[in-house]
Write a protein that binds this DNA or RNA. Structure first.
Lengths: 218, 218
DNA sequence: ATATAAACTTAGACTGTTCTAACAATATTA
DNA sequence: TAATATTGTTAGAACAGTCTAAGTTTATAT
């Protein structure tokens, strides 16, 4: 079993992984707000445990074992978020902090029960995929709203870079998953969009917002 | 804020407190399965934090502040147990271990929501009182079934010293809180009782069992 | 291509929580 | 009450996880 601390390193490595699956010590250090020398020694420890590939001055990479462990923690996190929203009536902007703690609980039975009560969900309240029981993630490719063109009609599938403030902003604009959005126009110079949804006929969304909204074309 | 570890010491001190509120280092050491010197130094630390009265070679005692902190942790534990049983359909023998972990979460909002969903319960699934939001416990005095006499009719109000095995035993005999029990006879030499409840007319309960069952006379 | 900047590593220290070994005080019992 | 057992304390070590300071390697830029 891994410590609370080790679990946080694994999770951060997983979440930071780019297409090559590589993460720098620096990035990890910044994400965790832990100084580089500390991260460095933890990487050696995780390498001993065969969770991370580590060589001096080379980027970090999770091993298959590490990916699985990280996936299982993220599974617990996302299941918890879904439970909090669906069964305890929390808002999607309230659940991250609580899930951050619950994800470290050691009780298979508890998470199985959640999963069952939720009907075995495959996405969390922000549209992120929930890893399966083996820790594997089913990567679905969505487009960014910011990559769509005027005239497109899309369905809001997921939101990324979900800070508290961003989610509250989405609440205030009635933007929620599943929403059908029509793109009326796109400004060239700043990438902002005018869109229509619900009963709104002309809402403006900045590029900062639209690149954090993932959509499905319909 | 106190560490996970400190919280466990506080809780154990609270739970071990006798009528004088005093606990020996030795008892605490055994309860926590932590060696005496470790307990000793932690007591000095908690004394520095004004959570425990500590003097060399004297019994340990929680301060008012310590009692409050401990009460609040036990509140979280018992609310969680109630939530697990009432809202997640766990058996009363399954909830202790999970609550043992969840009690350490730092999220007032989470526990308030549980409390609300449960309708502000005052007892946990084993009949133990849930401390209020200030950490105070409403001590209700129940009698032990083992102290009752033949002919008495009682209602099962709480169970104590609730190990897994004991709770499973109670399940197998259909013994649950609220149950009306008639005492048919009491054996002098071993204190065992023959009782009637539900459709059972002559169940024998050993003294070991009956002294762990708290009842209200009716 | 060399100077500078950024990223990374090593070394060593500190805190929190645990332990064992040894010693001291109190309690029990013969 | 004196010997013995139990309980409690002190001292010192160990480990996990963190830090700062200083040095090394790689990347960037003039």
């Amino acid at each position: 079993m891994h410590s609370y601390t080790e679990e946080n390193y694994l999770k951060a490595l997983f979440n930071l992984a780019n297409d090559k699956g590589e993460v720098s010590v620096n990035e990890l250090s910044k994400r965790l707000e832990i100084k580089m020398p500390t991260v460095n020694s933890m990487m050696k420890k995780l390498a001993d445990k065969k969770l991370v590939f580590y060589e001096s001055y080379k980027p970090l990479k999770l091993t298959e074992k590490g990916k699985k462990e990280a996936g299982l923690i993220i599974r617990k996190h996302r299941l918890t978020e879904m439970f909090l929203v669906q069964k305890m009536d929390f808002g999607w902007e309230q659940v991250h902090e609580i899930a951050e703690q619950i994800e470290h609980l050691h009780s298979p039975h508890f998470f199985e029960k959640m999963d069952e009560m939720l009907g075995y969900p495959t996405i969390d309240p922000h549209g992120s995929p929930i890893p399966d029981k083996t820790g594997k993630i089913d990567w679905v490719h969505y487009e960014k709203l910011s990559d769509c063109k005027a005239g497109d009609t899309v369905k809001l599938a997921a939101v990324i870079h979900t800070t508290d403030d961003f989610l509250k902003f989405l609440n205030s604009r009635e933007l929620q998953l599943g929403l059908k959005i029509k793109i009326k126009s796109v400004e060239i110079f700043d990438g902002s969009m005018v869109v229509a949804y619900n009963k709104k006929t002309a809402e403006t969304l900045s590029h900062t917002v639209s690149e954090r909204l993932l959509v499905e074309k319909i």
